[in-house]
Amino acid sequence: MSVNSLGLPIKESTEIVNHLNVLLSNFQIYYQNLRGLHWNIRGKRFFDLHLKFEELYNDSQLKIDLIAERVLTLGGTPLHTFSDYISNSKLKVGKDISKDTEAIQLILESLSILLQIERIILEKSGEINDEGTNSMMSDFISEQEKTNWMLRAWLEEEI
């Protein structure tokens, strides 16, 4: 078995890089959706949601950088064009959303898809003892599960 400079199998690491690039693409769409929600939110909950969306997009921006850096660490090249992001994204693009419940629902749908992708990466990275990727996915998942719970509580929906 051929290994990279990190001691990880090259073939499986390349597969993880591909999954990370899918995650990167989806996070870029998620980030842009959050920016749009931040700019366009209206109504009585404007002040609270405007700040919350800013908090979420700032967090997403940090995660985007971490994902790209992990791709580089594993020897890959992070995707970096809008056409790549769009073609690899599974997220719905939120356009002209200004209603609070619709905005929160879009975020919840997006988080659900991000979590699915992250769980695939978590499983694949665990199989080859890629602790760096595994730890990052574990951290992302736990944070996003908490965000999911809080947003569902805001909507007063049962989990």
Rank of each mutant, 00 (worst) to 15 (best):
L115S: 01
Q116S: 15
E127C: 04
L122K: 11
N134V: 00
N148H: 09
S142H: 00
E131L: 11
D130V: 12
Q144D: 15
D130N: 07
I120S: 10
I117W: 02
E145D: 14
F140H: 02
E127W: 01
I141P: 04
S138F: 10
K146H: 07
D139E: 15
N129M: 12
S112P: 01
I120F: 10
S125V: 03
W149G: 06
M150V: 06
I113E: 05
F140M: 08
Q144V: 05
M150A: 05
E123W: 06
E118T: 15
D139F: 01
G132Y: 13
S125Q: 10
G126Y: 07
E123I: 03
N129F: 09
N129C: 08
N129T: 11
G132I: 11
N129H: 14
M137C: 15
E118N: 13
E118P: 00
F140K: 05
N129R: 10
D139W: 10
I120E: 13
I120D: 06
D130Q: 00
L115C: 07
Q116I: 06
I113D: 06
G126I: 00
M150I: 07
S142T: 14
F140S: 01
Q116L: 09
T133D: 11
I121C: 14
L122V: 01
E123M: 00
R119H: 14
Q116G: 03
E143H: 08
I117S: 03
L122I: 07
R119L: 09
T133W: 12
E145Q: 15
M137Y: 07
S125W: 08
I117E: 13
M150K: 04
E145Y: 13
I128N: 11
T147E: 04
N134E: 09
E118C: 12
L114K: 03
Q116F: 08
I120N: 13
T133E: 05
S112T: 14
L114C: 10
Q144E: 15
L122P: 00
I117G: 02
L122C: 11
N129Q: 13
D130Y: 02
L115E: 07
F140P: 09
I121V: 15
L114P: 01
E118M: 08
E123F: 09
K124E: 08
L114H: 00
S135L: 09
S112Y: 07
L122W: 09
M137W: 07
L122M: 12
I120V: 15
Q144Y: 15
F140C: 11
N134L: 11
G126P: 02
M137P: 05
I120Q: 14
E131M: 12
I128C: 11
F140T: 00
E127S: 13
M150Q: 01
E127I: 09
S142F: 03
T133I: 08
M150W: 05
L114A: 02
T133H: 07
I141Y: 03
